[in-house]
């Protein structure tokens, strides 16, 4: 069985998403991978040096967040790996799922009131469906 990938970035829904992924990995005895995609913001005004600094800081934040998630998984007796990738969210996610032959992807949907969400709530199921269709990976959307 392919690994379970839990894509997280420390947002409002991240804790319950991680909890669900940990529970799922424990239940299925599957490898768990916490994935953080450092997606630099679309901002043409940033210089190259500034863009690099932004990617570095995003990656560093990703490592820290994933380390916390891994520790939590270990407390539940689940051994997890952490991976930080840089790139556009959708492309990087698809590529990673194919690379590791993932069986399941667990992603979270922020509460509607939360402003930080990347896409409106209605678009998340569409995004999940698209991922499932293009990669063949089962997508679990945690709300």
């Amino acid at each position: 069985m392919g690994p379970i990938v839990c894509a997280t970035r420390g947002g409002e829904a991240s804790r319950r998403t991680q909890e669900q992924a940990i529970a799922l990995a424990g239940q299925k005895q599957a490898t768990l991978i916490f994935l953080y995609i450092a997606d630099p913001f679309t901002n043409d005004t940033l210089s190259n040096e500034m863009h690099d600094a932004l990617v570095d800081e995003l990656s560093q934040l990703g490592h820290q967040l994933l380390n916390i998630a891994r520790r939590r998984a270990a407390e539940r007796g689940v051994c997890a790996e952490t991976v930080v990738r840089v790139g556009r969210l959708q492309e990087a996610l698809e590529q990673f799922l194919r690379e590791v032959h993932a069986s399941t992807l667990v992603i979270g949907a922020p509460q509607p009131a939360n402003r930080e969400q990347a896409s409106p709530p209605g678009e998340l199921p569409v995004f999940a469906k698209h991922l499932q269709d293009t990669t063949g990976v089962e997508v679990v959307l945690v709300t």
């Binding site: 894509a7 997280t8 970035r9 420390g10 947002g11 409002e12 829904a13 991240s14 998403t17 991680q18 995609i37 997606d39 913001f41 679309t42 901002n43 932004l54 800081e57 995003l58 934040l61 556009r88 969210l89 992603i107 979270g108 949907a109 922020p110 939360n114 402003r115 930080e116 969400q117 990347a118 945690v142």
Partner: peptide
């Protein structure tokens, strides 16, 4: 990063900046 992702105290009044961060959870 903080500006683009944090729900700060001014979230109630100020719109999110144009540059939105991509993300999932």
């Amino acid at each position: 990063i903080s500006r683009a992702t944090t729900p700060p105290s001014d979230a109630s009044a100020e719109k999110a900046p144009d540059r939105g961060s991509s993300g999932h959870a």
